[in-house]
Design a protein around this nucleic acid. Sequence first.
DNA 1: CCTAAAAGGATAAAAAATGTCTTGTTAGGG
DNA 2: CCCTAACAAGACATTTTTTATCCTTTTAGG
Lengths: 134, 134
Amino acid sequence: MMELTRKGEYAIRGIVYLAAQPPDRVCLLSDIAAAVDVPATFLAKIFQQFSKIGLVKSYRGTGGGFLLGRVPEKITLLEVVEAVEGPIIPNRCVVGVGECVRDVSCKVHPVWKRVQGQVREVLAGVTLKELSEV
Amino acid sequence: MMELTRKGEYAIRGIVYLAAQPPDRVCLLSDIAAAVDVPATFLAKIFQQFSKIGLVKSYRGTGGGFLLGRVPEKITLLEVVEAVEGPIIPNRCVVGVGECVRDVSCKVHPVWKRVQGQVREVLAGVTLKELSEV
DNA sequence: CCTAAAAGGATAAAAAATGTCTTGTTAGGG
DNA sequence: CCCTAACAAGACATTTTTTATCCTTTTAGG
């Protein structure tokens, strides 16, 4: 359980590749896809999601392509993962009070809350800089 | 992401209910299912998995039913979750060296390893006793 | 205006989750 | 010995999610 989907895996591969490029080097989606071995059409969707929240910048037309939205030190693995997989929610009941319809005093709730916190903490502590360094 | 499936949720509900019963009280599957609001046929599958690894004991025939396999203090949430959801593996590459075929020096690998460790630690620190107490 | 490149939407195939049904096995009681 | 209670096991069906692919649209450069 708790497995990252392929989408998440592809997302990490793709953006780590970008982070490893010289800054200001605009990369073609097709090149990235080939380099990290991900179907280009699928990676396109992923990068669209990145683009919407500013994790990457995109340019259309001739000479277009993708660029990291911020310096790699300022992008955490947590942001990348949540961008494509959605928020980290081990159990539905962590999303907010009142969700635990079954039991007003749900004892399991705080446990999942802790799990969520730990996972987020680990992922937030890793930046693309570290991941892209040789 | 990292969401517990319904099966996992049902599993917790069911076994916590058992843990809350007086020791030596044999419970019918149908009663448990009704009490925790889970389809009986589905819960049957879950309890079969529990039974195989000794988390619960089962008795057939008239007067049969289910009993906790050990005292609730000795059963952790980690065991319960892994019993039905399989091992906690945030990313395929944590299962062992050599799985990260894409990159010999995969930088993401140790991060997932840490995530796995943290999650397991939290879940291992909670027992059915605590979860079943009022 | 032609071509390059990403954006967006619709669709399809495959896999996993969720749930049901039928048959088999074990045990107790008349 | 047979009948019924109860779990075990396996096959099957349904729905949802994942994993794509394709086509059209938009944007930009030359």
